[in-house]
Design a protein around this nucleic acid. Structure first.
Lengths: 222, 222
DNA sequence: TTATATTTTTAGACAAAGCTAAAAATTAAT
DNA sequence: ATTAATTTTTAGCTTTGTCTAAAAATATAA
């Protein structure tokens, strides 16, 4: 089945919201999509007719199996494009989102599969979020915060959550990027810092605060 | 200024048609866009209001300077994506058009400039059509048909116009692709064939008919 | 538990883009 | 130079996605 850009945006937003709550409300979704509640009700009727969600008027709604699969397909496209923009076109982690927001609606299945292959089947986007597989399944995340990594265990940087100028500056200065090999050498509890070492630096120290925003994974990227 | 997907499609189609004729007609454009004449009239009013074309009811129309610039910007996006799909994602020359038709409407200026850089500033798309420059100017084409290439002058394959299965088979078999170095050794007028040599083959002969569909350029790609 | 506040839905309108059928303008042809 | 044929435009309707204002349902609270 093929969905309009609008429908895709709704599906994606509902998916995002229902990750936390069990059921999503009209006002809430309206806020998320920066639109008005009346518009939500209209679209819900259409999506229900297309059997993508459970919905009883006044009772809230939730994506069903099919709707979830569609959502994950869109998220897959989004994150693969983010990875492309960041890795190949050298956009900053903070610039990729808006452009990917447009590219994700280009529907060709072959396009996405070839892109995936071209990129080397990445498993995480530049923000560290996992990329759903072609079947629309979200892989169990095997990435952890740098602060949770046991000492002297080699891992690879898979993403960061804090994209502030400071953080980006720090990462740039230390030559930390996605894929960088990294090891935690010591943890200094007394001043909340950790000593780390990458394959491009001699050991250095960063704040635990910063380290918490760096995600790493054990295995090499497949 | 920003234009809708529909507006962009109209502008591109008008540009295509007015390359031959001096002025374009409603029926003609309707056929090109597989839509109805009444829809054309509606859109023409909008495009005229946006000062993209000259248009007198019943008198035909033609893009003005601004409209032409917009058309070339869209064509630039289209052809850069075609190049990307063909060179990087290994799509066949015949598969790229439809996907590029969607990607071309993604508006980000930075995206296109970075893509251009990433691709190495290509000057021709996989069909051999020139890629307009960032200012929306079409470079004078310095490519010629293989049959027009003087003997023993080295050139590079820049595209083909015939994408029939036969032609693709021939090119594949002879290892002729975009960028392949090629020289014409002899022209056999008596049976309408030419002997050519590439950097990957000993000399061989193909029909003049086939050679006419192969475009080459003198200088190396910039 | 009845009144009040909040949330959600309905009703009716609007803009974009398209269509059909009918009217108007232009072109061609006797 | 009229008539006939063709092209183009207008008028009015449809769909998608949005909005505002009003009505209905649900939740909260004294």
């Amino acid at each position: 089945m093929n969905y309009s850009t609008s429908e895709e945006d709704y599906i994606k937003a509902i998916y995002r919201l229902q990750e936390n709550q069990s059921t999503v409300g009209t006002n809430e979704l309206a806020a998320e999509l920066k639109t008005k509640p009346a518009s939500i009700t209209d679209m819900l009727k259409k999506l229900k007719a297309k059997k993508l969600l459970h919905y009883q008027p006044y009772r809230g709604f939730r994506l069903n199996e099919e709707g979830t699969k569609v959502a994950l397909t869109i998220i897959r496209r989004h994150r693969l494009w983010e990875y492309f923009l960041s890795e190949k076109l050298k956009f900053g982690w903070n610039e990729v989102h808006d452009i990917a927001e447009e590219l994700e609606h280009v529907g060709s299945h072959t396009l996405i599969e070839r892109l995936d292959k071209y990129l080397g089947f990445p498993r995480f986007d530049p923000h560290g979020d996992p990329i759903p597989d072609p079947a629309g399944k979200l892989q169990v995340v095997d990435q952890i915060k740098l602060t949770e990594l046991p000492l002297d265990v080699k891992a690879k940087v898979s993403g960061v959550t804090d994209q502030s100028a400071n953080m980006l500056e720090l990462l740039k200065h230390r030559h930390i990027a996605i894929g960088t090999s990294i090891v935690v050498k010591k943890k200094f509890d007394f001043d909340q810092s950790v000593e780390i070492k990458t394959d491009r630096n001699s050991p250095f120290t960063i704040s635990e605060q910063a380290a918490k925003n760096i995600y790493v994974q054990y295995e090499p990227r497949s």
